[in-house]
Simulated scan of single mutants.
Amino acid sequence: MDKPIRILQVIGIMNRGGAETMIMNLYRNIDITKVQFDFVVHTNEVGSFDEEIKALGGRIYHCPRYVIKNHIGYKKWWKKFLSEHSQDYIAVHGHIGSTASIYLSISNSYGLYTIAHSHSASGISTLKDVVYKLLSYNTRNVAKCFFACSQLAGIKRYGRHIVHNNKNFFILNNAIDTEKYICNDYIKNKKDKELCIDESQTVLGHVGRFDNAKNQIFLVHIFNELQNYNENSKLILVGNGKNFEFVKEKVKLLDLENKVIMTGVRDDVNEILQTFDMFVFPSIYEGLPVSVIEAQASGLKCLLSDTVTKEVDITGNVEFMSLEKSPKEWAEKIVSMLPYERKNTQQKIIDAGYDIKSTAEWLTDFYIKLAEKNL
């Protein structure tokens, strides 16, 4: 090939979320002389990764955010875009699920290979969930290929028949650059100093966007109960989102302001993980969270809600607990898991298939084979 093949990645906005971080991990590690990514984002805002995408040679296009009332306009945008650009691509890789059946169907009509990618194993608990399920359901009849971050995420999105019987269903692990997460005393001391952490303190940590699914309010209540067992402790919350101020207010109401650090979005998560003694993740639902892979790669013990797929435990350092248990019971469990000897888990992560280099090689080969079939 004289020039790289181009794949169109479809996403909401390229900020530092789990799916977006996974895509960028892949983008940084694919051979961009062979495969290039372009992006359609559903916003006019500038994303955290936009400049890096452009530096890597990617292009970013802005489509309208979908709401029911602009259904016709949304389809019209995609038809116009693909009439002008479809010849640039061999495949459309869709990460935004709610409208996948729309843009992938239109992409099919332009002769492009269509990939649906499930990053979540959400259930139906709100009206928003119901609407999402209704909008996304037909994707299973539209896409030519199905990716998921876990078996559970695949089943929730596409159904058991596709996961167990379709030869075009693949698990694409939420892989990471394992080298960046190895325990490092120098980095730990540097970050402890930056975040005003005393080495005698026990530090609980969490990384995730601030929304209902991540359940940070429950985590704050757990930490509040932990004070009855260990007053010399801190909680670090990394991320941002619609519930950030709500959580901040709860911290204030519980008089925990001097013990809870809310960092906002960070680009040094691999280093901040060094300051944690334990990773706590009480999500209401998940796919297979990359943040938990990162935490394990840092040698951390992790306590997760039992709504998170058991597939995420790849080091033996993960324990699960029901959200029906009280914050007090969660705090007691944390106490029982500490202290422990933190060890280098890099090889376990690699052996489990979560090293980004091998995953990027697989995906590069997958895309190239698609191009060869179309020649």
Rank of each mutant, 00 (worst) to 15 (best):
F49A: 08
Y354C: 11
K325C: 06
T263D: 02
L256Y: 01
L104T: 07
V163D: 04
F169L: 05
D268G: 10
I106M: 10
F81C: 05
K301S: 02
Y137C: 09
V247L: 02
N70C: 08
R209T: 07
S336G: 02
P4L: 01
S105M: 06
K252Q: 12
Q296L: 08
I349T: 04
G154A: 07
R6W: 08
G18V: 00
Q346C: 10
C196A: 14
T178H: 01
E332K: 10
Q296P: 05
G241R: 03
N230L: 12
A213M: 14
R266S: 11
E372Y: 13
D129A: 13
T21E: 09
N232R: 14
K75D: 06
E311D: 10
N228W: 07
L219I: 07
Y74D: 02
K325A: 05
L303F: 03
I7D: 00
I30S: 00
K301F: 05
T345N: 13
C183G: 06
I32D: 10
K250L: 15
L127K: 15
D38T: 08
D88Q: 12
G123E: 08
G12D: 12
N138W: 10
T139D: 09
Y110N: 10
N240M: 11
I217G: 02
F169P: 03
Y158L: 02
A55G: 06
E225I: 07
Y103I: 02
K75C: 13
H62C: 11
D268I: 09
L338P: 04
V335W: 04
Y158M: 05
V41I: 15
N44Y: 11
S83I: 01
S326F: 03
M262R: 04
N212W: 12
A331G: 08
F366S: 04
N174Y: 07
N212R: 13
V10Y: 03
L375S: 14
V163I: 11
S101G: 08
K252P: 00
N174E: 13
E311N: 02
A175Y: 04
E361P: 00
R342V: 06
V238A: 04
A100N: 14
A19W: 07
M24Q: 13
C196P: 00
Y113G: 00
T345I: 02
N15P: 00
V142Q: 08
I236N: 04
E311C: 06
F146T: 04
Q87G: 10
F37C: 00
D185M: 10
D129I: 08
K369R: 15
V10F: 09
P289Q: 03
F276L: 12
I68D: 13
Y181C: 05
E249W: 06
G241H: 03
Y113C: 11
D198H: 14
F279C: 04
D306I: 09
I182Y: 03
N173V: 05
Y229A: 12
G18H: 00
Y186C: 10
K193G: 00
G17W: 02
V318C: 15
I176M: 04
S298Q: 03
G57H: 07
Q9D: 03
G264R: 09
T275I: 09
G208C: 06
V269C: 11
G12V: 03
E257H: 05
T359W: 01
T139P: 08
Y285L: 12
T202H: 09
N184I: 05
E361C: 09
I334L: 11
C196H: 15
L152S: 01
S358M: 13
F244R: 15
D351G: 06
S136T: 08
K156V: 03
H221Y: 14
G47H: 07
F276Y: 15
I176S: 01
K328L: 11
